[in-house]
């Protein structure tokens, strides 16, 4: 199904934010919309978004490549993105990431064999006072999980395993 068929109202709302002759401004919100549910942008999305915004497919692909929250291939349904920058690292974020990966039997950047969880280190998430913390990029968007422990994270994954199929 095309984006226009799936999200007609949202698309209208997005374009209403910008001057009528500035359709290119909608490219980022449309990419966020395209990632809902499946977690990445495919070729059909690129073509459709380019068409909606009046730009080329290359222009859209450039945006996907530049910004870290856009992905061009399917990985884990849930991307657990652990902040390991200086402020979080001073409060044990590196150890948290290492232990979490060990318990899941993967290395940072890898996905669990069932395709559910991908764990990666990311840059600062502006929650330095609540480390260790991570964000989850999932089917419904993005959520923050702060003051975390490895045990709490594993529980979160177990709950998600039952909900996200």
């Amino acid at each position: 199904m095309s984006l226009a068929e799936e999200y007609p109202e949202q698309i209208q709302k997005i374009f209403a934010k910008y001057p009528p002759d500035r359709k290119q401004s909608a490219v980022m919100p449309l990419l966020h919309l395209a990632q809902l549910g499946k977690g990445f942008v495919d070729r059909h999305d690129l073509v459709e978004i380019a068409d909606l915004c009046g730009i080329t497919e290359t222009d859209v692909a450039e945006i996907v490549g530049f910004y870290t929250l856009y992905h061009d291939k399917p990985e884990g349904k849930l991307r657990i993105q652990v902040c390991t920058d200086i402020a979080c690292a001073l409060r044990g974020a590196d150890e948290f990431l290492a232990q979490l990966c060990e318990r899941l039997g993967i290395r940072p950047g890898e996905t669990t064999p069932d395709g559910l969880v991908m764990v990666e280190a990311v840059m600062c998430l502006a929650a330095c006072d609540k480390a260790p913390m991570f964000q989850v990029q999932g089917p419904d968007g993005i959520s923050y999980h702060e003051n975390m422990t490895v045990e709490k994270t594993l529980e979160f994954i177990e709950t998600a395993r039952k909900e996200v199929k």
Partner: peptide, 10 residues
């Protein structure tokens, strides 16, 4: 007033 979301770029 409108919100506009970025996508991960300092």
């Amino acid at each position: 007033i409108y919100t506009h979301l970025g996508a991960g770029a300092y």
